[in-house]
Nucleic acid binder design. Structure first.
Lengths: 395, 395
DNA sequence: AATACTTCCTAAAAAAGTTAGAAAGTCTTA
DNA sequence: TAAGACTTTCTAACTTTTTTAGGAAGTATT
């Protein structure tokens, strides 16, 4: 790639993350000299990709001109998948959904047709948007499972029948005519929290994705850590309990057997059967896990004692796992994110309690535990950021 | 610092790690252009710091000139401390001990005079070497405890009475007139294994330091990971056991309560008291823990069943901890290093056994478990590398 | 032994970075 | 309120570094 194109991309990425920046700030962040930066910014303004947005307040000298991204110029197709539902949204570079979020039922388990379906969904989304392909930077997809982002494969859910020559990424790229990038859902949530959420600027942060399982995305030394094969963050299967509960991975006692929204629903069902009193009674369970999980978390937030107690139990178990993270990685912050963050700060007390009991005090005091404000939006933001990261990274 | 000085240091560092390199290789590694690299190398040759060492075998073209470091030009003072013993060695830049390794008893626990003693030991070592201070790049010190290398403090063993204004590093620097750098012993062992040992080129590697405790140094994305406050790697205090054994940290069930050379000695003593048969009988325990630990490991290596069984037990427990590391960080390799590596490959089977039982197979197969060949030498090498890292890092 | 093909090294041209100073502002003090 | 001191942004001249093209010194193949 030509160098000036490379610099343009770096500048675009920085403004994408920061919303509005001056030339001096840009020069600092991309590590290039001011004259070169200004020249490139001027090119981008001439191409209508950037636009001046007035003057920043002076810090004691001449006021700098600031720049923002022209939101009609470029777009990213952002995709978030779980085992049942796939969400698709075309986003501009100010993180707005251009035409709403599409929601599609697409089971991944033992579904060799999944990839074909996904490809049509993506192509449709692009076509229906009416936006020219040349103005879409790429497609970013977050999905559960063991993902090798470099190769572009999902080892847990192949989504094909196994006879094909093409990887998931290759298939989708040829089907859509756009660059495609995939990564693990929890990793992308961590990326979103680091770039746009509560972990902004926390160069060492652990993002716990409380959902149908318990995922972990790690920000280490200011970048997403993926491990040697892209498999880092298998938080949910560390052996922590002597509960003899068989886990989906074949072992027993995994963290996941005691902590996930599925466990939350299970516990609620059993508790009600045992005669516990709760505002859930009458309309629970519905059988739709999305609704059921939300009901419990909303009831807890509204003060339902039974539901609060359930969250306490699970939160405490998560905290035991988090204690291990803190010992090993000494992070600046722990962020609770994903679907489960709907229950908000109800998680904090039980998690903190576990840390008090299981962490060396000197370590525990160095780490803040926080709840995401991005919530269910996080993964779509992370998918978009994934595209931008790849767009701006020299090949 | 002037730029050409900076480039010289980068080049010196690369040759220090690789022993001998050609101009092209150097250019690649320091990320500078070939003309600039060659010019700087020529300067270094003129200053007698580098010297040409013949031609490298051609890979299909003109044979490149290779360069090595003149071993009489520059030196590093390398220090390795544990709670009882401090070792000091002046090393040249080919990792040879210039005048042997000095061994000094220096207890760190509740010893506010320790720093003063250390300062004289260091000054003596420099003076007795007869080498001019200007030719010593600096002093690197590995020590146990919570170390903040940036600030230059040891929070576990202050080594002063607490009324001083100067940090450990500041005190030693003024006392010796040389740049001083400190870091955690396990971190430095990891650095040594990564730069000179079996983990060479393994950009994601976990180095377990089996000694009087169980330390962990982590190489992540090709560099030593220290966490947000320099406290990362507190492997020994993750809660893994329901054994009700009180740990020095105040909690119970820590990994350290079941795995360390101290535990090994304890178990041997108890086993012999219970009438177990072993070649240790008669000359064990001596009360000197260094000797006792060595006796057990040597007996095991010589085939003593009782000692092998002890190592199996402890190795299995270490393996349970390592399983957690693998789940979280998906490393390329696990290296068993430190004092305990004297028992060599006897560790491998029990550790691997624990991994088979506690790891998801897909993850376990991605990680190799290996024993260090550096052994007790590792920490001194790491201390030297610490100096070189700081020497070549732009301020 | 001659030709094709690599790779290392060097010299000239192009690109990027540095530096000094002008422009445009803020803040303090008389 | 006005003048002067001080900051910071931005620009133009100069310096450093990188890139490119080509010559030198090898290896492998025919």
């Amino acid at each position: 790639m030509k160098k000036d194109e490379q610099y343009k991309r770096l500048i675009l990425r920085e403004i994408y993350y920061a919303n509005t920046l001056s030339a001096t700030e840009l020069s600092d962040r991309i590590g290039k000299s001011l004259p070169l930066t200004i020249r490139t910014v001027n090119h981008l303004v001439k191409e209508k990709i950037l636009e001046p947005s007035g003057y920043a307040p002076s810090s004691g000298g001449r006021r700098p001109i600031t720049y923002t991204i022209n939101r009609k110029a470029l777009y990213i197709l952002s995709v978030s998948m779980d085992q049942l539902v796939t969400r698709i949204s075309l986003m501009d570079l100010t993180n707005s959904h251009v035409g709403g979020i599409g929601r599609h039922e697409l089971p991944l388990k033992n579904n060799p047709a999944a990839l074909k379906v996904l490809a049509t969904l993506l192509a449709d989304a692009v076509n229906q948007s009416g936006i020219d392909r040349s103005r879409i930077l790429g497609i970013g997809i977050g999905m559960p499972g063991f993902i090798d982002g470099m190769r572009g494969e999902n080892y847990s859910f192949p989504m094909q029948d196994g006879t094909e020559q093409q990887t998931i990424v290759e298939y989708l790229a040829t089907a859509t005519g756009l660059p495609v990038h995939i990564d693990n859902d929890s990793s992308l949530i961590a990326l979103a929290e680091y770039k746009f959420g509560i972990a902004r600027k926390a160069a060492n942060s652990m993002v716990v994705n409380i959902g149908w399982g318990v995922g972990l995305g790690m920000i280490l030394n200011g970048s997403l850590f993926r491990g040697n094969n892209g498999f880092a963050g298998e938080f949910s299967h560390i052996p922590l309990f002597n509960n003899n509960k068989l886990c989906s991975c074949g072992k027993s006692g995994c963290l996941e057997t005691e902590t996930s929204l599925l466990v939350l629903i299970d516990k609620a069902v059993k508790g009600l059967q045992d005669g516990k009193i709760s505002s859930l009674q009458g309309h629970f369970p519905t059988g739709e896990i999305e609704k059921d999980a939300e009901s419990i978390m909303e009831a807890a937030a509204a003060g339902d004692k039974f539901c609060i107690e359930l969250i306490r139990e699970i939160g405490y178990h998560i905290g035991r796992g988090v204690a291990i993270l803190i010992h090993l990685l000494n992070p600046r912050s722990i962020v609770l994110s994903g679907r489960g963050s709907l229950a908000g700060r109800l998680w904090l007390a039980p998690v903190q309690q576990a840390l008090n009991e299981h962490c060396i005090p000197r370590l525990a005091t160095q780490t803040a535990v926080e709840v995401s404000g991005l919530g269910y939006e996080a993964e779509l933001l992370g998918s978009a950021a994934l595209v931008m990261e790849n767009y701006a990274t020299p090949q």
